[in-house]
Design a protein around this nucleic acid. Structure first.
Lengths: 210, 210
DNA sequence: CAAAAAAATTGACGTTCCGTCACGAATCAG
DNA sequence: CTGATTCGTGACGGAACGTCAATTTTTTTG
């Protein structure tokens, strides 16, 4: 019942030792998993590989995550959690459809080029096999994009077209172009964003005008 | 050394009993695998599940495929082998960039809507996990597309833009829009193709003109 | 502050699936 | 018809999974 806070930060993070190590363990597992996934690829890594990369017992892992899938999902969610607010802010700021499109792509490609490690952990693959997991955070991000598209249509900023198709196209172009971009010696997010923006604003013909 | 052919079809398919059962077994495994993948999803199916769906012994499976990955790859390659010639023919026939784009998307979406089963076997997933495997056939298909893009540029049909980005964009839009299309009650390949074509030829603004 | 209660860690264990291999059956060549 | 070759078979060793009872650590209570 005591309100005493021991002189620590009064409101922030877990203070109890229990909560502290719980968070530390969770972080350690995620860290190890990220590294092992980036090294071996999703398919080739076993839960034991991840456990071995920490100094925890095998049973402890299962106190935090149910399976390999769940760690992977957590990693992806963490990443999505970082990008989503930026994308949302960028789109809220947009006053024209041009801003909407270019801001979205610019933000996305900039982020991918920056968070190199997460990208490798998520996309690195063995035997040309790639895994894509649509986690709640990621799905929420897609939904958000679709809703903003619908809003833009209602506001007359965008002609009435199939919002699902448009969202899917933006997602497809973003992910696929990002992969090409990251395969290159020196990833150029500006070039990628300009390409995607031009495509969506004017099609491939419009590039002629440059 | 005898040229005798036993009165069977002189040049076609395997005639020896050995070759016949080998082909039959391979086909049976692929058939079973396609069905099980479509039912359980790639991640959830075990090699044993596939074997159980045939009437073969476990060891026999490994005479034909090294692993689950390899069967999956074979299924994908088979599918790619059916689509690639159609796409190539369509693009060769094209005399303008409009034909090139619309023909490609039209052919692709028509095929996807038709070969419903393969699509489900390949894309069906458990726990929102999806697997993508870039098999040799599929990579070859991508390369072909990229080369045709470069040719079109050299022929002056297409402005000079990043060919890799353009190829990636077409692939991304095709796959992502196909998924939306197939989720709907009655898949409409024509609508999907028109959407994609308009996007690439004029961007989202161009739709206004309709 | 000690003892009880609660919570979390540990690693050994039963289970499932994997991929192999020695053996036997079926097919082919001469 | 016989030897050689190829293929099917299923039992087996190994690997990874996920659980759980016992133990250690932290918190709460008296």
């Amino acid at each position: 019942m005591s309100v005493e806070t021991k002189g620590e930060s009064p409101i922030a993070a877990p203070c109890g030792k229990r909560e502290q190590t719980k968070l530390a363990n969770r972080t350690a597992i995620l860290e190890a998993a990220r590294s092992v996934f980036a090294e071996l690829g999703y398919g080739a890594t076993t839960v034991r590989d991840i456990i071995r990369a920490t100094d925890l017992a095998s049973g402890t892992f299962y106190n935090y995550f149910k399976s390999k899938e769940e760690v992977f999902q957590a990693i992806q969610d963490e990443t999505a959690l970082r990008v989503r607010p930026r994308l949302r802010a960028e789109r809220i700021r947009a006053r024209s459809i041009e801003d909407f499109i270019s801001g979205t792509f610019r933000t996305f490609f900039d982020y991918v080029a920056t968070d190199h490690d997460s990208f490798r952990a998520i996309r690195r693959n063995t035997d040309s096999i790639r895994v894509r997991m649509d986690t709640p955070e990621i799905i929420a991000g897609f939904d958000e994009l679709r809703e903003d598209i619908v809003k833009a249509m209602k506001a007359g900023l965008l002609p009435h077209i199939d919002a699902d198709f448009l969202m899917a196209s933006m997602v497809g172009v973003a992910f696929e172009v990002a992969e090409i971009m990251m395969k290159r010696e020196t990833p150029d997010p500006k070039a990628a964003a300009e390409f995607a923006t031009r495509l969506f604003l004017g099609g491939i013909g419009a590039v002629k005008k440059v």
